[in-house]
Design a protein around this nucleic acid. Structure first.
Lengths: 342, 342
DNA sequence: CTCGTAAGGTTAAACGTTTAATCAAAGCGA
DNA sequence: TCGCTTTGATTAAACGTTTAACCTTACGAG
């Protein structure tokens, strides 16, 4: 009923608690082979399980990583409905577990109060996704723990960054449409915020247009929230009101699927009337009908990479500044939603 | 740089650490109003943040909840690709946060070692989803913390249960098809394990058939894993090899979407050639084409409910046995994948 | 005036670890 | 034999809380 403590192990092995601690932490240089064996056996027999709270108290290592993902504005619920985040989490969790760490998953209220959490829990590090106000990042720095930012263009050398080349992605998507003969290409996107990922994709979109000497028409930009619902609205508008538009680039697969539905709602077809390219390559992208042409970024790998960088930063604890951002590869997955014109 | 401790607060307020502790924990009966004020102010000014590890050490309350979800067999990755779990997590997290708890999300290796985690971390409780071998549950009981089981038919009064009436769900789905004139109805399902949720749905399926005096044909049961891929395979088989089958009930939306794709792969259409009913009503169910007819269970609500029950069990800590299982409601969402025959 | 009690504080032990400092014994070169 | 180093172990302090037990002082009742 009572907890088995290191003291119990020590008396059973007939040594001091210090010796037990040394053995259990692998500082075996300090202790003779036979004692090691005795302690090991005692711990085994008693089924000893260390108390991480106590450990954390003395050496400030909790083996706990904070993971923050965005949440819906209204409901205060995590944005896991977007498979991109689900997959990211999968990657993170797998990598952390492998090294004996655990993950505390949470959203945050308007960018506030997370340093409370991290201090209370003695977090060893954190992986942050989403964009928040500047003050939030300033707060984070105060805590002095390694932090990996995913999907963020905060150019602050304090933070580790695991990202993709969003500008390139936007360019690739748009270029693909242009290469297939499209000249009036809509952009369907979430809010374009300074230094946000969608802004970069937007810039890539414009670069592709410019390079092909196509006119950039602001009226062809549909900007609102990253939801299926808005995609659908935009799709309807495109199909109903903009006959000149023959293709759309949606900055997220979720929106792209909405766009397709919206176009259909108006009695038109994809890709016959309007071609669509998405972004992310979430797992359902190839499952929906027609299978979505999209820019693939491997969210699971990104999660693994983010966790990996965080862990090495923690274990080294060089206190040296983070290296270069890690940029994960992108590729165009050409499925069935783009029609070749001419 | 150094951590602000309760001692710092105490000296600034000019009282003992005990007084500070009393104030901060709301045992204000023990302390005069003016002292309360002084302590509050001192804590405020110093921006004091308590160390939960220390607290946990002394009173065995970590404000930490373990959440376990299944993982893929091969990759050791969480099964978050199934939106049902994502939504469940959203609900759980929202409710926990509201009460100042945090969630440790993880998968488990072949049902082993979770009691280690829970002991190490001093978990206050856990929410377990998925089905594991019996020994796992026996282990869990040893830890003596409140536990909520989601999607489980372990009839052990030690555990809290938040479930749905799976048998009824299976019945409703099948009945709906029968009511629309279908008589040869396939079942596409994950492994049917004793006392698992799919078994119940299977039983509901059989009950509906029996009630309508239809012949139960084991050859019409396609049983394997709960994946899109298997659904697709089953769909192909149905379309290609079983001309008599006019409808299918898939025990999960993910599979149902696979079935639809498989049927299409063979050049047939849904619902014209084969009708399909799914289960779960995951968020994409109404987004895919055609929108999926399915049995709706609200995963988010279930998450909230599970967390809620767990929290009350923790706070009361009556040590009394859990009450009745909570059964969440189901409803049939009639969309476009069922054809009315005759 | 004395005693009992209540109110408001404080002291110090306890929770389960880690680890610097210390100690004892043994080995060894001179 | 003497001092020095090495090896292997122990002691005790520290980490930041909570809380039972104890201590004052003041206040009434008797």
């Amino acid at each position: 009923m009572k907890r088995i403590t290191i003291r119990d192990v020590s008396v059973r092995a007939g040594v001091s608690t210090a010796a037990v601690s040394y053995v259990l932490n692998g500082r075996e240089g300090k202790v003779s082979p036979e004692t090691v064996a005795r302690v090991r056996r005692a711990a085994e027999e008693l089924n000893y399980i260390p108390d991480l709270s106590a450990r954390s108290l003395v050496n400030n290592k909790s083996k706990l990583i904070g993971v923050v993902i965005p949440q819906t504005e209204d409901q205060k619920q995590l944005l896991l409905q977007n498979p991109f985040y689900s997959e990211l989490i999968c990657g993170i969790e797998a990598r952390l577990r492998q090294s004996g760490y655990h993950m505390i998953l949470s959203g945050i209220e308007k960018g506030e109060g997370y340093l409370d959490t991290s201090m209370q829990r003695n977090l060893d590090g954190a992986i942050i996704t989403g964009i928040y106000q500047e003050s939030f990042y300033e707060d984070l720095k105060k805590v002095r723990m390694p932090i990996v930012l995913v999907d963020s263009y905060i150019y602050d050398s304090y933070f580790h960054v695991v990202g993709i080349d969003d500008e390139l992605g936007g360019y690739m998507a748009t270029k693909h449409l242009i290469d297939n003969g499209h000249t009036n290409i809509a952009l369907v996107t979430g809010m374009i915020r300074k230094d946000g990922v969608v802004e970069k994709r937007f810039l890539g979109y414009k670069r592709a247009l410019k390079e092909a000497e196509l006119f950039y028409n602001p009226d062809h930009v549909f900007e609102h929230s990253v939801t299926y619902q808005f995609g659908q609205e935009a799709g309807k508008l495109i199909a109903a009101k903009c006959p000149e538009i023959t293709a759309a680039f949606a900055t997220s697969d979720l929106m792209a699927m909405g766009v397709i539905q919206g176009i259909r709602d108006e009695g038109k077809e994809v890709p016959e009337h309007v071609s669509v390219v998405g972004f992310d390559d979430i797992s359902i992208a190839r499952l929906c009908t027609p299978p979505l042409t999209t820019i693939k970024q491997d969210a699971v790998s990104r999660g693994i990479m983010a966790a990996d960088r965080l862990l090495t930063a923690i274990e080294k604890s060089k206190e040296g500044l983070p290296q270069e951002p890690t940029i994960m590869p992108l590729s165009l997955i050409d499925r069935d939603t783009v029609l070749k014109l001419t």
